[in-house]
Design a protein around this nucleic acid. Structure first.
Lengths: 227, 227
DNA sequence: GTCTATAGTTCGATAGAC
DNA sequence: GTCTATCGAACTATAGAC
């Protein structure tokens, strides 16, 4: 029996939270990093709010950078696994899937992940937005490692199902789609301000209903364009 | 003659940089905040690279928060002034402007501002991306103060020139347009990675040529939708 | 307006007991 | 695996000379 297995056994036997301290640290990391940013977040606060000693975080994750990456790795592998599964399932149905269903498959797992979390649901989504929009080498390294492979699959899917769409335009289409999706994931509250309370970026279902047709029309416009 | 005027006179007579220390601090603030983020940036580094004493920054701007806001205020007023001027000029021509020209007027001033700056041109654009995508109270306060008024003008313009576009959908359209524009302003280099070097998010002209049709098609799709 | 020097805080990381 | 205690290295902001 590995040490990893033992750790999980102990976690399950923990009556108070039914969760290992290891996972509690990762959970709280999402909350704190989301609210304060990487530099603004402190290991002290994560430790306090997770109810563990500060030293324990260094024992499990060595330093702040590796804690952050472990947090990204855990959640991104889970969400992107769902996405890959969804995408492949779509292509195994009768006939090629519609552009709209492809796009829904791109964004829905992020929403589902948010809803199932305790506390602030969209914490990891907000972290993701800050990573994806950073030009820093480290952040782009994380994006490349945990998100580029999935991006490539979606780009290939777009080329397959949209007649006349070049790979170059499919890359732009994917980037623009992600850009629009950020509006939903960032949860800035700006739509509400700009619309006197009518448009709510906290309601993911409503946003999806707006985002999917918007992106789909944009992608199809590339069909009538050179390159 | 005001003290403000005197300060500028002295700046012009400065042979070495032809720029006051006050402005040098703001210029270097853009570079450092863009590369390190608000929390990650340090007043020490800004002072050193601007060639001034650290204490001078506190003399002019009191603290880090006010330095940041002064930097945002200077550049946003300049760029948004151009935008407003462009937008109003479009409506004074013969007949209403096209959706495409409205969108070009939204993004081009950001590009021009980048090109005319010394050193790293897109520094302020990257800062803007991080502010706009943050859910923090302070960042949203800055967005509301320096960008919401312009956003309202663009939303009104969209309602005017796109037949059948409700104000609610115009707000979403504006938000999504900004989201796509982030792809250009963030300068992450991801399009290049995903396309094996073909798509370059460093070339703003090429990006505009892709962004404008994409967004325009998306906006027009709202015409055929309820709400 | 500009500088030097430093006070006062807070943070990441380590050491070592249990 | 978990905790307490602490070191050393930053950082912001202020005080005071010029």
């Amino acid at each position: 029996m590995t040490l990893e297995t033992l750790r999980k056994r102990k976690a399950i036997s923990n009556a108070s939270t039914s969760e290992s301290r290891y996972d509690a640290i990762l959970d709280m990391s999402e909350q704190v990093f989301a609210n304060s940013g990487y530099k603004g977040a402190t290991i002290r606060e994560i430790a306090e709010r997770a109810g563990v000693a500060q030293g324990l975080i260094h024992y499990h994750f060595r330093n702040k950078e590796e804690l952050f990456e472990a947090m990204v790795a855990r959640r991104s592998k889970s969400i992107n696994g769902q996405r890959m599964h969804l995408l492949r399932a779509l292509f195994e149905e009768n006939g090629p899937p519609s552009l709209e269903r492809i796009m829904e498959g791109l964004f829905r797992p992020t929403i589902e992940a948010g809803l199932s979390q305790a506390g602030d649901g969209g914490a990891f989504a907000r972290i993701l937005v800050s990573i994806a929009n950073s030009a820093g080498e480290w952040e782009q390294g994380l994006t490349a490692k945990y998100y580029d492979p999935m991006g490539q699959e979606y780009i290939s899917a777009l080329v397959k199902i949209v007649p006349g769409l070049s790979r170059e335009n499919a890359v732009w289409a994917y980037m623009f789609a992600i850009g629009v999706g950020m509006t939903m994931m960032a949860k800035t509250g700006r739509p509400r301000r700009l619309s006197n309370g009518i448009c709510d970026d906290g309601d993911a279902e409503v946003m999806l209903a707006k985002i999917i047709p918007f992106i789909s029309a944009g992608v199809r416009s590339f069909t009538k364009q050179p390159n």
